[in-house]
């Protein structure tokens, strides 16, 4: 218990003490500054996009891993956890190198006139990378346990394969997909290491909120950094709450009383 308080509670309280200590007016001024707002907006939109991409493709990957067979499947399955195991800085520089205009993928994109590195697109790519395992891993067990009889029942009742997927399978998977989505979103919102290299950190354009905090710290603007952090923290708590609720809902729907 003592350990817990030392390691967790103390730092947390420090943050809030500091934030409120600065006076609300100053906090509000900081938080509503255009640059800060732009950073929030960018962080939120990019994280949302990345999480959405992961929701769709994560579901697809989980489906393919559970239902289909192909050579090297166990290897691929293990590799899905890479973004979770790889240090963020390593992922960050690797992605930047790959998507820079002279990188493997960056070159191909440049040929079509798309620039990835140092643009919001690059940020979305990095955030998709780090959120990848979340949807896949929450959907996989649910898909595995999906009763074959449900699909057979739908078939005997005359449903086509597409109807079975959209009316029976997908609703059953929905809670898991949503949970994975929320987890990916939460992770993406706070992400620093993977993004800081590929974004280029241009204020108002490709500056994400965590970076802004870092910049303010380097300028010794503790009040400003804390204010921004406090807002992000509030958002994280809300998201964490939502995730816990979602997980509770998912368990309830899946229960066969």
């Amino acid at each position: 218990m003592l350990y817990l308080s030392l390691v967790v509670l103390l730092p947390l309280s420090a943050l809030f003490l500091r934030a409120t200590g600065s006076g609300w007016h100053q906090v509000w001024a900081t938080v509503t500054d255009p640059r800060v707002l732009a950073a929030y907006r960018l962080s939120f939109l990019a994280s949302l996009t990345g999480a959405l991409i992961n929701a769709v493709f994560g579901l697809l990957v989980a489906w393919v891993l559970v239902r289909y067979d192909f050579p090297g499947k166990p290897l691929v399955d293990g590799l899905v956890d890479l973004p979770f195991a790889l240090p963020t800085a390593v992922g960050g520089i690797a992605l930047t190198t790959a998507y820079a205009s002279n990188g493997w993928i960056g070159k191909a994109l440049a040929a079509v006139g798309i620039q990835a590195a140092f643009t919001p697109l690059g940020i979305v790519i990095a955030l998709t990378f780090i959120g990848l395992p979340f949807v896949v891993r929450t959907v996989q067990p649910v898909l595995q346990d999906l009763d074959a009889e449900l699909e057979e029942a739908a078939l005997t009742l005359g449903a086509s394969r597409a109807q079975t997927f959209f009316r029976v399978i997908l609703p059953t998977l929905a809670p898991a997909v949503l949970t994975g989505f929320a987890l990916a979103l939460a992770r993406a919102l706070g992400e620093y290491g993977s993004v800081v290299f590929i974004s280029g950190n241009m204020p108002m354009k490709t500056e994400i909120a965590p970076l802004l905090i870092m910049t303010k710290l380097e300028q010794f603007d503790y009040a400003g950094a804390t204010a921004i952090a406090a807002v992000m923290l509030a958002a994280s708590f809300l998201l964490l709450l939502a995730i816990n609720l979602l997980q509770g809902w998912a368990a309830g729907v899946g229960r066969r009383a």
Partner: peptide, 18 residues
Amino acid sequence: DLPFAISPVISGLMFVLL
């Protein structure tokens, strides 16, 4: 679960504030 939910930068910030 808390450290998971907080951005690592904010975590670092807390220690600086402490």
